[in-house]
């Protein structure tokens, strides 16, 4: 029998009457985020995202040859995604290998990104997307979508646009964005969301917990606003390596 050296503690107050959250944020405030692209040498494209306490690495391989061969699509690229959590990514060690949750998340991440990819440009090939959660702190799937979308762009895959993602939700009567660990555990509703910002179309949407009609509408709008902010961050992160090159060419470095 193995017992973890970890005890979960529920905070007494999830959100104050003034709308101050357990980590001191306001309802519409995001946690600190940093995005970096091109962090891996062997992958065709890669990105690293630090979002609150999350540390997530995404890599893209392809377009490349399809194995096994029977999965080949003659008219477009096959798109595969794998979401995986490291054994040391959680307070209690996670057994390596896929579980039901990671299989579902792999599917919704793939379906969040696929509409953005011009798969018809790469018939008979495969584009593999890998999302590795090194450290988890609520909102790993949306952080993973942001990183994977940047890794696709970093790999030079032709896309309709970037997919950005953020979770929104409800704690008591407050609609909040970017749920933290406490809100994820004990909040009333959780709604991860991703959008192809070019056309403002939703590519990922899940809800876990009840919201009234007006709360739901407010959540959707807060999600879109948050995602728009993340989308701008993604573009900045993708441009950064080229700005470094530009500065070095101009002799500023």
């Amino acid at each position: 029998m193995v017992m973890p050296l970890y005890i979960e503690k529920k905070p007494e107050v999830l959100i104050t009457e003034e709308g101050i959250r357990t980590d001191g944020r306001k309802p519409r405030e995001l946690r600190p985020i940093r995005m970096t692209v091109g962090v891996l040498d062997k992958a065709d494209g890669s990105a690293f995202i630090e979002w609150g306490g999350n540390r997530i690495l995404a890599a893209v391989f392809g377009p490349r040859e399809v194995h096994p061969k029977h999965m080949i699509l003659p008219d477009k690229a096959l798109v595969r995604a794998r979401y995986n959590m490291a054994p040391f990514s959680t307070p209690e060690r996670k057994r390596p290998g896929p579980d039901r949750r990671s299989v579902e998340l792999s599917k919704v991440i793939r379906e969040a990104l696929k509409p953005a990819i011009f798969a018809e440009n790469y018939p008979g090939s495969v584009i593999d997307i890998f999302v590795e959660v090194l450290r988890s702190d609520a909102g790993t799937r949306v952080a993973g979508v942001n990183a994977a979308s940047m890794a696709l762009a970093n790999a030079g895959i032709s896309m309709r646009g970037l997919v950005a993602a953020c979770a929104v939700g409800r704690v008591e009567n407050f609609v909040i964005c970017d749920l933290n660990h406490d809100e994820d555990m004990w909040g009333n509703a959780d709604m991860p969301m991703a959008m192809l910002m070019e056309s403002e179309e939703v590519t990922l949407l899940q809800i876990d917990g009840p919201m009234t009609e007006s709360q739901f509408k407010e959540a959707l709008e807060l999600g879109r606003d948050s995602i728009r902010f993340l989308y701008e961050m993604q573009k900045e992160a993708l441009k950064r390596p080229y700005q470094v090159i530009e500065r070095s060419v101009k002799g500023d470095l």
Binding site: V2, P87, F88, E92, R93, L134
Partner: peptide, 11 residues
């Protein structure tokens, strides 16, 4: 590049 994590449980 490698990342190694050491976790402890009791048993």
């Amino acid at each position: 590049q490698v990342l190694v994590g050491v976790k402890a449980d009791v048993g």
